[in-house]
Amino acid sequence: MEKSLSPDQTKQIAGQFARELKPNDIVAFYGDLGSGKTHFIKALCKSLKTKQEATSPSFTIINEYYTYDGLYIFHFDFYRLEEKGELQNLGLDDFFFDKGICLIEWADKIVEFLPLRRWEVYLSFIKNTPDGREIKIIKLE
């Protein structure tokens, strides 16, 4: 568990985490609205040197970025998912079992569809510290 006291510190933590990631990794993000999932992912993608700046895929569901080395990053946001039947038209396994890296916001909405081998990142607020966040990163094998 790490404590970040500012958005800049969260960026640093995301940057360190980016060095751990390899092709075919899946990262599930958990945290309430405003807890900084997209902020963390923006910094993560910057560290991975994606050609595009990461933006929230709340409306598009999936954003695609790629690095100069040809690594694809798939950024998902399932906040708007209302029923699991909608997932049928996404072909999620094509992404989860491919060579790219999948970053998944609101992963709790699709947790039963995620491969067991994945990273989990939990972001939560710190009481009386508006910009503070507790960040827990777990690797599941």
Binding site: K84, G85, Q88
Partner: peptide, 8 residues
């Protein structure tokens, strides 16, 4: 082929 598991 894959039956869609977990669909409500």
């Amino acid at each position: 082929l894959r039956a869609f598991k977990g669909v409500k």
